[in-house]
Amino acid sequence: MKAWLQQHLAALVRAARRLTDSPLSALLSILAIGIAMALPAAGYLCLDNLKALGANSGSAQQMSLFLDADANEKTRADIEKRLEALLPGQWRFISRDAALRQMEANEGMAEIVASLPKNPLPDAFILEPDDADPEHLEALRATLGAWPGVAHVQLDSAWIKRFDAFLRLGRLAAHLLAVIFAAGLIAVTFNTIRLQVLGQAEEIEVARLIGATDAFIRRPFCYLGVLQGALGGLTAALLLLAGTLALAPPVSRLAALYGSAFVLRGPSFLHALALIASGASLGWLGAQLSVRLIRDQ
C-alpha cells in the first residue's frame, strides 16, 4: 500500500514537473481550458441570477383569491384558517372596501367609483407562495379554486410560463454549450498528452525495457491531464469571479433604478469546487483516451 502511494505521489510530482518544464505551453493550455469552461459556467450563472431576479420581482408568483360576492365573515375566517395551514405567512387579506379605496386612489378612477350604485369588488386574498414553480402554482390554483366560498383564483401564469420557458431554453442552451466545450476540453487535453507521449517516447521505451508496467508509464500522463484540467477549472472560476466583480456594481445601480435590491451573484465556493472537479474529471478522461497511444506504441 505504501509503495503504491509512493508511486502515485512520484507520478504526481513528475506530472507537475512536466507542467513547469514548459510553462508557456502549460499556461496557454490551462487558459484555453479555463475559457472553455468559463463560457457555459457563465451561462449557468446568468440563468441562476435571472431566476433570482424573477423571484425577487414579487409579482412572478403572486396569486389573487377572490371570494364570492356574498361571502360572510365565517367563510372568510374559514379560508384564512385554511390558508394559514397551507401557506403560512405567505398571504394577506384585502377587504372589498380597501380594494375600492385603492381603486379610487388611482388617477381618473374616483368619478367612476362614485358613479357605481354599490361596491362591486369582492373580498380578496393576495398570495405569494415561496415555491414559484409554475406546475406547483397551477396545482395550488386548482386546490384553492375548489374551496367553498372562493369565486375565482387568478394567477398570471402566462407570464410565469413564458419566464420559465425562457429559463428552460437558456438552461438547455447552457447544457449544449457545456457538452460542446467539454468535448473541446477533452480534445485539448488529448492533444497535450499526445504531444507529451510523443516527446517522452524514449523514456517510455527505456522504462518498458527495465520493467515498467503500462500503468506506471501512463500514471504521470493521467495526473498531467488531471492537474491541467483542475487548473483550467480554477482559471474558469477566477474568470467568472472577475466578471462578476466587474458587472455587479452597474447591475445593482440598474436594478435600483427599477426599485429592486437585486445583487448579481458570482460563483460560490461550491461552484468553484465543482468547476475544478469537472476540469479534473474531463482532463482525466482526455488523458485516458490519449494514453491509449502508449499501449499502441
Partner: peptide
C-alpha cells in the same frame, strides 16, 4: 533511480 521507482522502493 528509475528501475527502483518502477518497483516502488521507498525513496
Amino acid at each position: 533511480l528509475l528501475p527502483l521507482e518502477i518497483i516502488g522502493l521507498a525513496p
